[in-house]
Design a protein around this nucleic acid. Sequence first.
DNA 1: TTGTACGCGTTATCAA
DNA 2: TTGATAACGCGTACAA
Lengths: 338, 338
Amino acid sequence: MVTLADVARRAGVSSSTVSYVLSGKRTISEETRRRVERAVAELGYHPHARARALAARRSYILALVVPLRVGGYEPVMMEVVTSVTVAARQYGYDVLLITNDEGPEGLRRVAVSGLADGVVLMDGAPGDERVELLRDTQAVLIGVSGDPRGLSCVDHDFAAAGAVCADHLADLGHAEVAFIADAAAPHDRTLAGFRDRARERGLRFVHRPCDRTYESTAGTFTRIMADRPGTTAFVVQNEGAIGPLLGLLRTSGRTVPEDASVVALCPDRVAGRHTPRLTSVAGPTADLGRVAVELLVRRLTAAARGEEPVDELVLLDPVLTVRESTGPVDGMRFAVQT
Amino acid sequence: MVTLADVARRAGVSSSTVSYVLSGKRTISEETRRRVERAVAELGYHPHARARALAARRSYILALVVPLRVGGYEPVMMEVVTSVTVAARQYGYDVLLITNDEGPEGLRRVAVSGLADGVVLMDGAPGDERVELLRDTQAVLIGVSGDPRGLSCVDHDFAAAGAVCADHLADLGHAEVAFIADAAAPHDRTLAGFRDRARERGLRFVHRPCDRTYESTAGTFTRIMADRPGTTAFVVQNEGAIGPLLGLLRTSGRTVPEDASVVALCPDRVAGRHTPRLTSVAGPTADLGRVAVELLVRRLTAAARGEEPVDELVLLDPVLTVRESTGPVDGMRFAVQT
DNA sequence: TTGTACGCGTTATCAA
DNA sequence: TTGATAACGCGTACAA
């Protein structure tokens, strides 16, 4: 292993001079710089990470805590993991992976041993024992809209997502809309956002929670059409209901989007897979990781300067992607029943 | 930050004594041990990872290199990532994530700086520039059946997977079988394994490569039934052809498994999603990560002892899961045409 | 502009 | 059984 001292000897200078040439934290004469750089190149010197970390009192490592089991959401997870890693590199940090099967102890290990400078937690909720542990550490929570003191958070703006759906359909001239929610995991914020915007835009709507089965979807659909026969558009928050709904529309003789518009609240990947390809509103998954790192780096930088880090909460704007499942009311095949 | 010296002062012993109490690498008198342990508890001391790493000349960190883009295989990736992480922890290692967008430089950084003790590479092929870099480091390749010198490798045993398919169908009494391969990514080893075992078992078979489209599958299916009307079973290696094939069987009036058996070479998750649920042969994904770590730890242990690490190649046995899509020829609805 | 000297927290070695 | 002391490799305040 080539050390700083080796380079110094070869260049005929002291080791600190080599260090300063490399860090650029001191002005160095042209002559000395050349000699040092040459010695570095000839010897193939690379700084030793552990020694550097020890001296600098920073490891330049971020810990990323991922859920061990993520039934069905692996693609989202992977995207967050890679975006965190790529963003971290841009700030000069590496990423250490912690699975939550270690429980609080895993976090404690990393935080207290100084292995990592900061923590990104993917599945933490306020009140979580681990979140409490993180108050001593610099940390950012992904997927949390609250603002636990001592932490920064980033999450999708679910209320805005609901509002975007309402806006899109109102813009297309729809006046009567159904919102099919997920009975199992109700994102109240999405519905609230939709409801508020719908009212502002003068949109009539019904809200129906629904299980993720064909039967439940069928029942919901039948009731909606019975109660509100003038319904011209559907907002589907329930991923499991998307397929069934499209099937029900088809078998009931309705073509999408000529006879009914459908907006899905789901990842683009899912929306693009259906026939017709669905207009959808999705949170920007990759931004989740990138922003988390930015928040964390900001905290670390502040802490390194001896300042008190600011607790920030970032809500990411949803992305509306117009595909083939929504159209203007004007162009609808049948007259709108009012 | 509480240091070893703080504890030593409090316990009235030297810092090295404290260290030995903690590591257990030396016999310590009961009296001294108690005093030290009390001081540790009172001060809330935790060893400092970086300092420990510097002194021990080992970081107890493994680098895991993951592909940045993994269209469609995120669940598999996630499973390998988590299994590597969990296995690493069991050996006392943490896992550092490297995305391959950094290219060879990322690996060089980690290897040369001593940040990690070893590397697990998920997407390396022999001849890869990065694989060459790894010869100086202790490394294991996942998904490689070759045996580049200086490395260990772990991969699925594709030939065995093919053989298992042949065995299963032969056991059920099938005598004439079709193998639908993936034209885009032909795993010759799977086909070879199937072919060899089919011959041993006296199975007649045709082999047809096929694109991942409905049209291609339809053409392939038609030709197979025309050439070999006595075909009673299908082995599908092409994931994109599974859905179409099931549809084609249905529309041609054949029920699975009464009229035709289907074995899919695909992840369990995919196999379980079809109707009927498919008998499938899959590689044990989680074992991929676990075994990779075991191989790497073995190399590291050897290297730490000054021994020459052994280059190992592990091929994992495929797993046959019998579901609803295969049945005995005896029970078939129509007579077998020969 | 450059060099000296010390600290970071742990472990290994040698001495007691 | 225990204790001093010297690395480990780098960063940086301080001195020159």
